[in-house]
Amino acid sequence: MSHCIEMKQISKDYDRFQLHQVNLGIQEGYITGLIGPNGAGKTTLIRMMMGMVHPDKGEVKLFGEEDQLKLSRNKARIGYVSDENIYYEQLTVKQMKKVLAPFYDRWDEDTYQKYEAQFKLPPGKKIKDLSKGMKIKFSLAVALSHGADLLIMDEPTSGLDPVFRRELLDLLSEHIQDERKTILFSTHNTTDLDRIADYIVFINDGRIIFHEMKEALAEQYVLVKGGKELLDRDVRRMFVGVRENAHGFEGLAKERSDVERFFQDNAICETPTLEEIMYFTVKGSAVHV
């Protein structure tokens, strides 16, 4: 299996935020979801992949290349959907398309027209007058129209209504029918990923907490619900994060089989959702600091 994005020992210092020696390889042919709370470093990582932000240390490879010249050429193979509008707001949709199309050798006008119609993009409207969802649809149409092998999307579903969110998931599945195509998208809305993601990268506070197959997560993690009397200090240590209320506790633990054997019938053991894994991990790390 080959990686189409590789990041090695990436570090970056900001005033109030650091990326610590991030290592990451994105599998070709699959959908990888990048999750984490706001401010965890998702956007910084994505901008590094796009060559917008330079790491202080470490290297970024795209399609196995790290040479600057080839890297920049390789951007033609990337469809990028930014978390904020990067297009010229005073231009109309049509003008903007005309501005950017000639930079891509594999630009396919028919495909673009198809998506323009499907997304109901108004060609004569100025970018600044488009709704947030429409702006995302436009950049999605662009990303899908130049034969990109890799889609990198930063929070593409925020600002989209639930109906189009579902449509987007369909589009992504359609894209991935060709097994040489790869998708990486970041989101804090994990329900999008619960369904279609193959791999999950979870980043919190500038560190990668895990990079796993989504299938494997369900077998690893367990959500335990039980009475408070079960929670002594040793038991607490088993959990990644715990939430207590008047009637009992909920805790996320990692070694599923061990934990299930330990609690047996004294507590309820469930498969956690991605959101629960994210919530308890962030909560747990906040306590330990």
Binding site: G29, Y30, I31, Q177, R195, I196, D198
Partner: peptide, 17 residues
């Protein structure tokens, strides 16, 4: 495998498995 994943809106790895 990929078609099944698309139709059921599930991940490719799941249908592969």
């Amino acid at each position: 495998i990929r078609q099944l994943a698309k139709e059921l809106q599930i991940s490719v790895i799941t249908s592969k498995r």
